[in-house]
Each structure stands twice: as structure tokens, then as C-alpha cells.
Design a protein around this nucleic acid. Structure first.
Length: 507
RNA sequence: CGCGGGGUGGAGAAGUGGUUAUCUCGUUUGGCUCAUAACCAAAAGAUCGUUGGUUCGAAUCCAACCCCCGCAACCA
């Protein structure tokens, strides 16, 4: 038995759960369930990132404490477990002062001890409207008439949102010597000690590393960032997101009750096997996080699996377009397993994918109702009519099962979840073909051949159920429960309407 | 010349030098009737973004160009 530790990224709680986070959770869930099924000791971690100026601002606007804001929102993320039938073992919240903070602070001390943290003044453009620093790209030429006065020096640049000229502000921060680790990180990724999947993402990060990493700011003055983990030994500064949020992979990893430094030991013995993340945060996980771990003298995760984003109707989801898809609404309307199936099958597991109700319906009717549901009903009805079955396994059927089970598992190992599902459906298709060829309902077929054909179909169905366990746990259990195989004898209960066909709702 | 990813039948994808370019959905036709008007088979439908090159042979390698999408360091 081996160990398997998988994580999702932690979600920022300034908004309710997004369907993209649902996808990420499902992908990690499949991996966790698969390893559990194999008999591995699996640990699946998820959680929420709860600090930052944005949260503090929301709290301020609503006249409540930041703690209240994050408590409210974190619940929504936890509820995803029930809604989507997730199997995570722990949910870590970065506002957890008892478990998380000591770990984040211990990490900080380690970096400091390694001589990798230093003070430096940071200079930036500060917009009063944003109450935050803005970058050059946030600025646009002024369009206001009153700004036209100083044409002598050209156009005035102002903040796009507030039409105000930003101030130049200097402040002192702690910086992390990430640049020091560029070479080491690069070589670890290059030789797959830290595997980045898919290949295209690996190349992307390698080309970034080739240009070299710069040191990153690791803290903010506490007056600007009041809501966060205090920097150990410097009460004027609060940790900026990196040391805080990324440490969750250690603090959330079944931290021993003693906490703090003891948590790091656990990671030292067995770091994460996979971090499942979105393409938007690749560089943080493939550069800053490994840099921190190297500095702290800790092992790197073994793999980072990068998924794409979900588009809605071919476009980026955004509130202003009104095409945001709420995962809870979906599950409510359909079922957990059908939403799981759609997201895991339709969205290529390492590229962008699209969500639309039309496609959902197509997948549901085509694959779940007509494919899986119908085959289960078909086989179980045939078997139920005959009562107890005996007979052997056809060599050709056995070989096909072996081939496709192998393919499904191989794809899973490559994190190609949608292709793994596709292999399972190949097996279903083979089952339908097999039945049509052997016609166990036909009067001209001998009793022995009928028994044989149905026996083989049941074995196919049983294998499908087993392969489906990580993807569609509920459905898989329903099918498995109906099939009893003991020695050469088989008994099957009738399985009806796993997925009732949907009527066309939309044009 | 910032970096990267991508452009394959109506839609979505697979396919990194070699016989008639694969799969799913959709369309048409035939078969079957155990099954959720489900299942099986066959057919139609692609100048593989454009142009040029390498090669006996390219979707696949090279060059130029066009188009789409990310990223461009503090935004998680």
C-alpha cells in the first residue's frame, strides 16, 4: 500500500464558489477516489484563502468584521462537498490561527534562517480610488478636459477606473530571494522530479525560468494589510499572500495536534503527489512555491497538474455578460453524478472547455441515458429474467475488457480524465455490440448460448461500474449493488432508469 | 520583432512523416425489438488557417503571413 496526497488550490472567498473551482475539486476527487479504490492511503486536501485587503474592504463596507465575512463565505465552499459528492479529507482555512498560522510563520522563519528574506523599499503607483497600488497597464491617457492643460509634457496618465492621477509611494517590504533558486527549480522541472502536466504547461514555465526569476515581495505594511498573518518578529508587517496561502499545503496535511514545526515533518516524509491547479496560478505553484520549499529545506511536490478554464457559451464567464454558471444550481437541477460527468468528460482535462445547457443535455441524453443507463437496464433486465446464471467468460470479451480497463487506468495516470471516461464508454459500446451480435432474446438461440451471452454482458457491466467508481460514485454503487458474482454464478437485480432521458427544453 | 497556446468534415475533439485522416454529437438509409422512441450497421460530409519550401511521400518538418486566446511579476 502506498500513500497518495492530492490537493486543490485554495479558493479566495470574496465570491461564492465558481464552477471552475467545482471542476478542480472534481478532478482532485477522481484522483483521490481512484487511489482509495486501489487500496492506497489517500489524503485529499482543499480549503479557502481568506486574507487580503479585498476581504478587509468588503468587511469595512458591510460594517462587519473580516472574520464574519470569511466565515459566511467559507461555508458555501464547504457545502460543495455535499452537493458534488466530494471526498476531501480536510478543509483548511488560512484564517485558522491555531493550525494554519503557526505553519505559515514557521515557514517564514525557515526562509529567514536560510538568509532568503531581506528588507527593501518598494516603489509603486498608488491610486487613492483603488486604495491600492496600480500598474502601468491600469493607466490610460486622461480624457477629461481639465487635464488638457499640461500639453507641454504630453498626455497625463490616469487610473482607468477613477480618472485620477496615481501618487508615487515608497514603502518598505520583506522580499524573498526567489532569484537564487531559478536554476535549481529549472533543473527539477526539466528532469521531471517536479512533473508539470501537461507538457505545454511545462514548456511554458521552463521558458519563464529561462528568463530568470526575480525576487518577490513577501509582506506589506500592516496598516495597508491589516487582515493577514503577522510577520514573525516584525509587527509592522503582515505576510503577503505567498507565504500565507501556499503554506496551506503543509498546514492542511493532517497536521499533528502539536502543530507548528511538527507539521513540516509530515510534509518532509511525504510531500504532495499532485497539486491540482488552474492555468492562471501556474507560475506561483511552479516557481514561488518550489522556491519556498527549497529555501526551507523541504522536498518539492511530485507533480503539478494544470487544468484550463471553463467558458460559458464559448465566452469567458463574467457577471456583466450574465453567463456565470452556478454549480449549486446545476446540481439542484440535475444530479451530482450528471454534473460530475459533464465537467469531467466535456472539459478536456488540460485545456479550456465550454459549458452550455445544450451541450449538457447532449452529453446527458447521449452518454448517460442512452449509453450507460440503457445498457445497465438492458443487461439487468435480460439477466433478471433468467434468474441465476452460470457460464464462463468468453476469451474475446475478456481480452477486450482487459484492454479497455488498461487504457482507462493509463489515461488516469496521465491525468487525462476525459480520455479515461472515453475508454470506459468504449467498453459500453462494445457491450452493446456484443449483445446485438449474440441476441440472447432470440428464440433460435440455444439456452446455453443465451446464458453465456448474458453472463458476459454482466461481467462487462460490472467492470464498467468499477471503472466508474472514481467518476460517478453514486451510479457506480447502484450498479455494483445490483450485481452479485460468486464463483461461476451470477445474480442480478433489475436496474431501472439510472438517468431518465431529458426532454428537449431549449431549441 | 515581448512570451506562450491554438486554427482538422455543421459542432466538439484525436492524430507530430507513410496505405482509403480517427472518434463523439448531428444528418440520411438499413437492421433489431432484450433495453430509457433506447441499441447495431452503413452512407453523405474535411482543398487538415493561407502561401511557399524540404521529402519518393506532410495535418505531421522548415519559412513567411493571417486570425483567435492567454500571460507580460504582486491580481487571487
Amino acid at each position: 500500500m502506498s500513500k497518495f496526497y492530492v490537493t486543490t488550490s485554495i479558493a479566495y472567498v470574496n465570491a461564492p464558489p465558481h464552477i471552475g473551482f467545482a471542476l478542480e475539486s472534481l478532478q482532485a476527487d477522481v484522483l483521490a477516489r481512484y487511489h482509495k479504490q486501489k487500496g492506497d492511503e489517500s489524503f485529499f486536501l482543499t480549503g479557502t484563502d481568506e486574507h487580503g485587503a479585498k476581504i478587509a474592504k468588503v468587511a469595512d463596507e458591510r460594517g462587519i468584521s473580516p472574520k464574519q465575512v470569511v466565515d459566511e463565505n467559507a461555508i458555501r465552499f464547504k457545502e460543495l462537498k455535499g452537493a458534488l459528492n466530494l471526498s476531501w479529507d480536510n478543509f483548511i482555512r488560512t484564517s485558522d490561527q491555531k493550525i494554519h498560522w503557526p505553519v505559515a510563520q514557521e515557514m517564514w522563519r525557515r526562509l529567514e534562517k536560510a538568509g532568503d528574506l531581506y528588507r527593501k523599499s518598494y516603489e509603486g503607483l498608488y491610486c487613492v480610488g483603488h486604495e491600492a497600488f496600480v500598474t502601468q497597464k491600469d493607466l490610460v491617457p486622461a480624457v477629461n478636459g481639465r487635464n488638457h492643460s499640461d500639453q507641454s509634457i504630453g498626455v497625463t496618465l490616469v487610473c482607468a477606473d477613477h480618472q485620477k492621477e496615481p501618487e508615487l509611494i515608497k514603502e518598505e517590504n520583506w522580499f524573498f530571494k526567489l532569484s537564487k533558486y531559478t536554476g535549481e527549480i529549472e533543473s527539477r522541472i526539466k528532469n521531471d522530479e517536479l512533473r508539470i502536466v501537461p507538457e505545454s504547461r511545462k514548456n511554458e514555465i521552463l521558458s519563464l525560468l529561462k528568463e530568470g526569476l526575480e525576487d518577490v515581495s513577501f509582506s506589506r505594511p500592516s496598516k495597508d494589510l491589516p487582515w493577514g498573518v503577522p510577520v514573525p518578529g516584525d509587527d509592522t508587517q503582515t505576510m503577503y499572500v505567498w507565504a500565507d496561502a501556499l503554506s496551506n499545503y503543509i498546514s492542511g496535511y493532517a497536521c499533528p495536534p502539536a502543530g507548528g514545526a511538527d507539521c513540516l515533518k509530515k510534509w518532509e516524509q511525504h510531500p504532495a503527489d499532485v497539486h491540482v491547479i488552474g492555468k492562471d496560478i501556474l507560475r506561483f505553484h511552479a516557481a514561488i512555491w518550489p522556491g519556498m520549499l527549497l529555501s526551507a529545506g523541504l522536498p518539492l511536490p511530485k507533480a503539478i497538474y494544470v487544468h484550463g478554464h471553463i467558458l460559458s457559451g464559448g465566452r469567458k464567464m463574467s457577471k456583466s455578460l450574465g453567463n456565470v454558471v452556478d454549480p449549486f444550481e446545476l446540481v439542484d437541477k440535475y444530479s451530482a453524478d450528471s454534473v460530475r460527468y459533464y465537467l469531467l468528460r466535456e472539459i478536456p482535462s488540460s485545456a479550456d472547455g465550454d459549458f452550455s445547457y445544450e451541450k449538457f443535455e447532449e452529453r446527458y441524453n447521449g452518454d448517460l441515458a442512452n449509453g450507460l443507463g440503457n445498457f445497465a437496464a438492458r443487461v439487468s433486465t435480460l439477466a433478471d429474467k433468467l434468474g441465476e446464471l452460470s457460464g464462463g467468460l468468453d476469451g474475446m470479451v475478456e481480452q477486450k475488457i482487459k484492454e479497455l480497463v488498461g487504457k482507462a487506468n493509463q489515461k488516469l495516470g496521465e491525468f487525462k480524465l476525459h480520455e479515461s471516461l472515453s475508454a470506459i464508454w468504449e467498453l459500453l459500446h462494445f457491450g452493446d455490440q456484443y449483445l446485438n451480435e449474440n441476441k440472447p432474446w432470440d428464440k433460435s438461440v440455444s439456452e446455453g448460448n443465451k446464458q453465456q451471452a448474458i453472463h458476459n454482458s454482466v461481467v462487462i457491466l460490472d467492470n464498467v461500474a468499477s471503472l466508474l467508481l472514481p467518476f460517478l460514485p453514486e451510479t457506480s454503487a447502484k450498479i455494483s449493488k445490483a450485481i452479485r458474482i460468486e464463483g461461476g454464478k451470477i445474480e442480478v437485480e433489475k436496474i431501472s432508469n439510472l438517468f431518465p432521458r431529458m426532454e428537449k427544453i431549449k431549441t
